[in-house]
Nucleic acid binder design. Sequence first.
DNA 1: ATACAAACTCAAGTCAACTTTAAGTCAAGT
DNA 2: ACTTGACTTAAAGTTGACTTGAGTTTGTAT
Lengths: 141, 141
Amino acid sequence: MDIAEVAKASGLPASTLRFYEEKGLIQSHGRHGLRRLFGANVVERLALISLGRNAGFSLDEIGEMFTPEGPDINRPMLLAKADELDAKINELTAMRDGLRHAAACKAPNHFECQKFLRLLHIAGKNQSRYPNKLKENIKKQ
Amino acid sequence: MDIAEVAKASGLPASTLRFYEEKGLIQSHGRHGLRRLFGANVVERLALISLGRNAGFSLDEIGEMFTPEGPDINRPMLLAKADELDAKINELTAMRDGLRHAAACKAPNHFECQKFLRLLHIAGKNQSRYPNKLKENIKKQ
DNA sequence: ATACAAACTCAAGTCAACTTTAAGTCAAGT
DNA sequence: ACTTGACTTAAAGTTGACTTGAGTTTGTAT
């Protein structure tokens, strides 16, 4: 496949594909003249990358998580990311319930509604400058 | 409370508090000399902001969602955000299950494992340059 | 009264993740 | 042979969310 086909199949602009290749997230195997040639599996991989981005992981994290393969699949790390997602799912759930309640609630101001505040107090401390990134990774830098 | 107290109570640096005030996300009511004076409720509000950030909303969105009060609480918008969160929760759940499976799976490469791929295919198209932001809002710009 | 740590302002810098621009290359069709 | 249009690279620009730096202004403690 040439880059335009991959772009069409993945929904990503060619510029992003080049950028991802430069970052090592995807690979082209060879050229036709100047033009990159990609294998069909790259589309699958791009879907996975999008998914990871959407789940809030940075490109670097995704790179670590899904090495093209490797002797080091780092299972503990994958499990740690899964646990993080569990925590995040809990927060999002609390937030969602909070929003639904706020939309239904008669109180003039959310802060005067005890139920709203209670709902949101479930989820607490997980703030970081880059909500996309793991705290651990931030620390690591 | 002065800014240092708020910083301590909220865990956010003073620079962030000034920045949030400038953006209209929080308010100080008055000064002591040059120094801002905050009410105690600002801490509650900051917690809510952090929660929103963590849930993937931009500061602008959070501003819209939680107006200090207002005649226009825009319930449909809150419900729409809640629906978005539902979608995101589904994706994160799929991703989490995918990661747990990948950590347990014997296949040398995730892409060769059908179960892994199947798990991740649940969640699909929700990519955007700014995963923090709503598609709708991007479009709006 | 003087020192000084802590606040202040305003402008500029940073970071991730891309996008845009400018200038060049080349396979393929006429 | 020549045009064309999709591709290429390298460098610079963009965006949101802050942070940092430089220079200024206090409230409080000595």
